[in-house]
Design a protein around this nucleic acid. Structure first.
Length: 466
RNA sequence: UCCCCAGUAGCUCAGUUGGUUAGAGCGGUGGACUGUUAAUCCAUGUGUCGUUGGUUCGAAUCCAACCUGGGGAGCCA
């Protein structure tokens, strides 16, 4: 008895006339009084389900096969044949059907074979991977993750796992989740009435990381080309379609690189992974084009085929001021760009992703490298239509005196940055890196509008079920 | 966190100048028909009208608070 996946059968990997067993879940069943039933079975291996033709002669035809409903788990043994019907190249001529698990009450099975809203599916996060759309999203997500690792590996980057728990509250990227084993009903206090974290698990305050960047810089300052790919946590009360409390981030960090180097790296990476998805998941992408976003395939192909548009912040301000568009927030040099401005640039002015560079230093983080003009820092954002910022990066300030000055100006606790300053004291080098929001990338590629639908189990404010 | 909108059958939604027994499609079930394919046709059941309180002779409908979801904004990836 040999087993095969639906993808192998439909992909022509199994020779016609050979007998195999396919295991999975029933999507639909149709009975024909000609004495056969058609069962569509899916197993997650590809977008399409496999059609099995089940003859009425099977011993369990009446009491089992004809009672199968959407969601039942089964194994079908049969012979691979070329399909007599339209809609599929191959099908399975069944000789045996084994039922693993019935659907307790078909009337209330949440994943009926009809169109469900994304909001509804989210309430059944444990069952939604059985749907077309979540299955397709997860295959594309996997392909993107694999392509990212492959991209960096082929270029000599090392994957560095930066810590998820941190005792540094100075990462500066947002509100942090506390990690503690203290008894919340009986919190130990110091003499001056504060919480005595010396009695906590790590002997001091601890949090979940908001970014691996500061840590990974130390590995870039020795292994030269590194990247992180792991979970990140932000305790911000963000209720939008593009924020999660727990999300995955890809953060390359490159020694001896400047802003243009990593802007180029970001563009190369996006083109590489888009090409991989188009090549490896045409079935899922065709579905997104059909049901989610009509130009899903063309727009990725267009990005793969063309140069990325680079633009200086200063030039972007000028474009926004002279475009004739009415903005809610006025545009002038020195302000941070609002969503409406980013949207205009990516969606209307460029019509695709755009790389914005060299922002005013006063609206950016302390670690970004100061430019010669004294006004801007070597920072960049990659803005994508429909999503906004999917990548944020910069050259890092490698000159200790300038970094210290910046820490003082921004009134940050210098003593907390000892390890970070050490990297500038011992063999400092120019270096740069960026952070890619992985779920934002998946959302952009699939066209799915809400980021909560491109991660298996979304975590967001007031929402961490499953 | 702020602004706006929504919550009615398993799902998608209609229904509110306050008034008797709250509707449709899909799904489920039964049947007809068919190498079918989100099949088609006939029949059939289904409701704490988000929660709590208020106004009223009477509330799915009006009011308030809360909960949940959506869109937008801010924070950011």
């Amino acid at each position: 008895m040999s087993y095969a996946s639906v993808a192998e059968v439909l992909g022509g990997k199994i020779a016609v006339d050979s007998q195999i067993t396919v295991r999975g879940w029933v999507r639909t069943r149709r009975d024909s009084k000609a004495g056969i039933s058609f069962i569509n079975i899916h197993d997650g291996s590809c977008f399409d389900a496999l059609q099995a033709v089940v003859p009425a002669e099977l011993s369990n035809y009446e009491n089992e096969v004809q009672k199968l409903t959407t969601g039942c788990s089964i194994a079908i043994t049969g012979v691979v044949v070329r399909s007599q019907g339209k809609g599929q190249s191959f099908e399975l001529q069944a000789t045996n059907v084994r039922v693993y698990g019935w659907v307790e009450d078909p009337d209330t099975y949440p994943m009926s074979p009809k169109r469900h809203s994304m909001e509804y599916l989210r309430e059944y996060a444990h069952l939604r991977p059985r749907t077309n759309i979540t299955g397709a999203v997860m295959r594309v997500r996997h392909t993107l993750a694999q392509a990212i690792h492959r991209f960096f590996d082929e270029r000599g980057y090392l994957w560095v796992s930066t810590p998820i728990i941190t005792t540094s509250d100075c990462e500066g990227a947002g509100e942090m989740f506390r990690v503690s084993t203290l008894d919340m009903l009986n919190v130990p206090k110091t003499e001056d009435g504060k919480v005595d974290f010396s009695q906590d698990f790590f002997g001091k305050e601890a949090f979940l990381t908001v970014s691996g960047q500061l840590n990974v810089e130390s590995y870039a300052s020795s292994l030269s080309k590194v990247y992180t790919f792991g979970p990140t946590f932000r305790a911000e009360n963000s209720n939008t379609s593009r924020h999660l409390s727990e999300f995955w981030m890809v953060e390359p960090e490159v020694a001896f690189a400047d802003l243009n180097d990593i802007a180029g790296l970001a563009a190369d990476m996006l083109q590489y992974v888009f090409a991989a998805v188009l090549r490896e998941r045409p079935d899922d992408m065709a579905f997104f084009a059909q049901r989610i976003k009509a130009d899903a395939v063309e727009r990725l192909q267009a990005i793969v085929d063309s140069e990325f548009v680079h633009m200086d912040y200063t030039d972007a301000i000028e474009i926004l001021q002279n475009c004739g568009e009415k903005f809610e927030y006025p545009v002038e040099w020195g302000v941070d760009l609002q969503s409406e401005h980013e949207r205009y640039l990516a969606e209307k002015h460029v019509g695709g992703p755009v790389i914005l560079k060299n922002y005013p230093r006063d609206i950016k983080a302390f670690y970004m490298r100061q430019n010669e003009d004294g006004k801007t820092v070597a920072a960049m954002d990659v803005l994508a239509p429909g999503i906004g910022e999917i990548i944020g990066g910069s050259a890092r300030e490698e000159r200790l005196d300038i970094l210290d000055k910046r820490i003082e100006e921004m009134q940050l606790p210098k003593e907390e940055y000892q390890f970070y300053r050490d990297l500038r004291r011992y063999g400092t080098v120019p270096h740069a890196g960026f952070g890619l929001g992985f779920e934002r990338l998946v959302a952009y590629v699939t066209g799915v509008q809400n980021i909560r639908d491109v991660i298996p189990f979304p975590r967001a404010p007031k929402s961490a079920a499953f």
